[in-house]
């Protein structure tokens, strides 16, 4: 495999000035990109995959973002019955809001309280609740995060500007078939806010555990 995994930083800049018919002049693919496209074309020609299926999944993934997770969190903050279902039957509770889980992985919810703060990592690869939150941030996949989060979670959180003080820290290493979503605490001073207003306070980082929900603007 070693001959096929080189990143194409050495691709030639051999544009000869004339435009290929119907193609953008500035398109330039790395060797890795060419190989990915080659695989997709070949699989399509052989009838193994339909390229519209690939595009459908790209569209699905692009349609997901931390805002989707924020809607789930805000609903849990404002509806105790929903929160109960979210903790006991996450898959059903997500589906209620129109978020089906795709792929084989199930999802579990970790509730932060005054006593316990959760932080999620996947040390072996980069497991993440992509069905709900979209694709993970680069730092979540970094070697530094994967190495350090399980041994120095408080140091890692401080780098993100979070100090949880006396609260017990529980790091969850997502090693298997479960993807973990942190249910952050509802911030103080938000009693009068609507569910829609609360959504804006729920950050991606608060659902991974390197942050908490934002305080309301006074």
């Amino acid at each position: 495999m070693s001959t096929h995994t080189h990143q194409g930083h050495d691709h030639g800049h051999d544009h000869d000035g004339h435009e290929h018919e119907g193609m953008l002049e500035d398109v330039e693919l790395s060797e890795r990109a060419r190989r990915v496209l080659a695989m997709e074309e070949l699989l399509a020609e052989k009838g193994v995959v339909d390229r519209t299926e690939v595009q459908r999944l790209i569209d699905f993934q692009e349609a997901r973002s931390p805002v989707d997770g924020a809607r789930v969190v805000a609903r849990a903050w404002t509806d105790p019955d929903y929160k109960g279902r979210l903790l006991s039957d996450p898959e059903g509770a997500l589906l209620e809001l129109g978020y089906p889980l795709v792929g084989s992985a199930k999802l579990a919810v970790l509730e932060n309280t005054d006593a316990v703060h959760h932080l999620v990592v996947c040390t072996l690869c980069s497991c993440y609740p992509t069905s709900l939150l979209g694709l993970p941030p680069d730092w979540y996949k970094s070697f530094a995060y994967r190495s350090r989060a399980v041994v120095d979670p408080r140091g890692v959180m401080r780098e993100f500007g979070l100090d949880v003080g006396d609260t017990e820290v529980r790091v969850v290493d997502s090693t298997a078939d479960l993807r973990y979503l942190v249910l952050p605490q509802r911030p103080a001073g938000t009693e009068g806010m609507t569910e829609e207003e609360l959504v804006a306070l729920v950050t991606r980082d608060s659902m991974i555990g390197v942050g908490v929900a934002l305080a309301p603007v006074a």
Partner: peptide, 15 residues
């Protein structure tokens, strides 16, 4: 190509 890689894996997994 990164999005296509992710999606191709997803399609093959579904199948």
């Amino acid at each position: 190509w990164e999005r296509h890689t992710h999606a191709m894996v997803g399609v093959l997994r579904e199948k």
